[in-house]
Amino acid sequence: MSLKPSMKNVVDIQGTLCLPIRIYFEKKGPSKYMSHLDLMRCMTRTIRRAGVPIWYTEGFNPHPFMTFALPLPLGTAGMCESMDVRLTTDMSFDEIKTRLNNSLCEGIVVTEVNYVGKKATEIHSAIYSIRLSATEAGGEILSKNIERYLSQNEITVQKKNKKKQLVDIDIKPHIMDFSVKSEGEFAILNIRLPAGNDLNINPAIVLKGFENANNIAFERCDIVREKMLTKSGEKFL
């Protein structure tokens, strides 16, 4: 069924009626080894396979219009990922969700399809949960050491600057919140860090700093981005 100008949120884009929608998904398992570019390619193909009609850019080399809230680093899982596309035909959100889930690769699961909400630029921080293990120490000792490390007044780690050079920074003022607990051989760290276009701190650099300071190497280091929050602490939706 075609879209009508009277329908909620329908806009006219270069002469085509479109409904901007947001697709929320999880990216985990094998899919976390896809780069952001891989993910864009994968989503384009999934949408084509699923027969979800979306708007393509005009011009010589048309490509599907698709924007992502905030890229995930390679190897990090995400539970609150989202991308925006523009629907060109009326299709129910449930139908879109089912169709996409039937043709997605292992590890990517669409959890919800909805109208577009907050702007991606409103993303201010992210909460990560990180499962860690090391051969040198059991879960309990590991979590105590992490607790101690993160409680220091100053924590110097290395971060790449815009010129891709490694520079020392004090990460302490940026750690908005954290908690550590042990679970068998694992230490589980929950940490909230700045995220978004202005300042984005990858938890991997904090963990690297810990490894260097304690002279150990994690055996497992499974990072999951659990939530993205706005400045006022609301969930990004």
């Binding site: 398992g29 094998p30 080894y33 999934t46 390679l74 997605l104 292992e106 055996e219 497992r220």
Partner: peptide, 17 residues
């Protein structure tokens, strides 16, 4: 355990459509 220490880990995990 080893995937994050190698280049292009996506080569080794399968799970493709």
């Amino acid at each position: 355990r080893i995937l994050l220490s190698v280049e292009k880990p996506g080569r080794y995990v399968g799970g493709e459509p």
